[in-house]
Design a protein around this nucleic acid. Structure first.
Length: 284
DNA sequence: ACGGCTGTTAGTCA
DNA sequence: ATGACTAACAGCCG
């Protein structure tokens, strides 16, 4: 599922459904989903009797705060949660089940089994490697232009993979990075240090806008089926380049192209996003 | 029918 | 530092 807007949608949905719920029992059907020092029996035992206090999000990570522990959950490509009555049959690809005292389950499903969860003591979430590396949240109050420009000016690699690695700013994935680069009129292969200060500023603003609008829309739902938490998004209607291969560019009418950049499918308009500098377009 | 794709990240190697 | 490649997996599409 997840880039930041989808994870945020899951966070809100889960919190509304199960805030203050108490765990009665935990079942694990695919052990490798759980990482860190508390796995298997020790993972289950720690969680029994714990009450869920709140759910936070950092980048694409969900942080479920219990009394003594925080469950850090990353959905990777296809992880999903559902909340259903305990007597409901398990769906295929259900890997972890948290039985609640109120007769419901929180269930974790993940077709490709790429998702990971780790249980740490409250307050220890910053010790998890994936979280330590994260840059600022993509919001105007914490994602500041000048540090972004400064870091970008020292990056020689292409701007698309630079934005995907979560250090400059957290939350972009393959969909929203293509959308933000399109909105900014910047070619995905431009080296980070080739962007002018003005281009960096337009890109910075585009990232904030694209992710902000996607959060408002409840995220993007593509190719995944109904009913799992957080799949009620409708930002797919607002995608300008992702999945629009061959369709006319909304800005100039030329067909959207698809290539590969850093091993990822990459959508862009060859007319609006040139490989040469200073092709900046006004923010839409 | 199979090879290449897929909203991710971490690791290795040159 | 960076890019290429792999691994973790399963399903879908042409």
């Amino acid at each position: 599922m997840p880039e930041l807007p989808e994870v945020e949608t899951v966070r809100k949905g889960l919190e509304n459904l199960v805030e203050k719920a108490v765990i009665q029992e935990v079942e694990i059907f695919w052990e490798r989903i759980i990482t860190g020092s508390r796995v298997g029996e020790s993972f289950k035992k720690a969680l029994v009797g714990e009450q869920l206090q709140q759910i936070r999000r950092r980048g694409k990570f969900l942080l479920l705060d219990f009394d003594r522990y925080t469950l850090i959950s990353h959905l990777r490509m296809e992880g999903k949660y559902e909340v259903v009555p305990t007597d409901e049959p398990l769906k295929l690809h259900t890997h972890v089940v948290f039985h609640l005292k109120d007769g419901r389950d929180i269930r974790y499903l993940d077709v490709r089994k790429f998702g990971r969860m780790e249980l740490v003591l409250r307050g220890q979430e910053e010790t998890v490697a994936g979280i330590q590396r994260l840059g600022p949240e993509p919001f105007a109050d914490v994602f500041l232009l000048e540090p972004f420009q400064a870091k970008l000016s020292r990056i020689k690699k292409a701007v698309k993979p630079a934005l995907l690695d979560q250090n400059l700013v957290t939350g972009l994935g393959n969909i929203y990075v293509d959308e933000a680069l399109f909105q900014a009129g910047i070619h995905p292969l431009r080296p980070g240090n080739s962007l002018t200060p003005n281009e960096a500023a337009v890109l910075h603003q585009s990232i904030i806008e694209v992710l902000g609008k996607a959060i408002q829309a409840g995220g993007t739902t593509i190719r995944t089926y109904l009913n799992a938490l957080g799949e009620s998004g409708n930002f797919q209607q607002d995608l300008k380049v992702y999945g629009q291969t061959g369709e006319p560019c909304v800005r100039c009418g030329n067909p959207i192209q698809k290539t590969k950049v850093a091993q990822r499918g990459t959508h862009f308009c060859a007319h609006c996003q040139k490989l040469t500098e200073e092709n900046v377009l006004p923010v839409m």
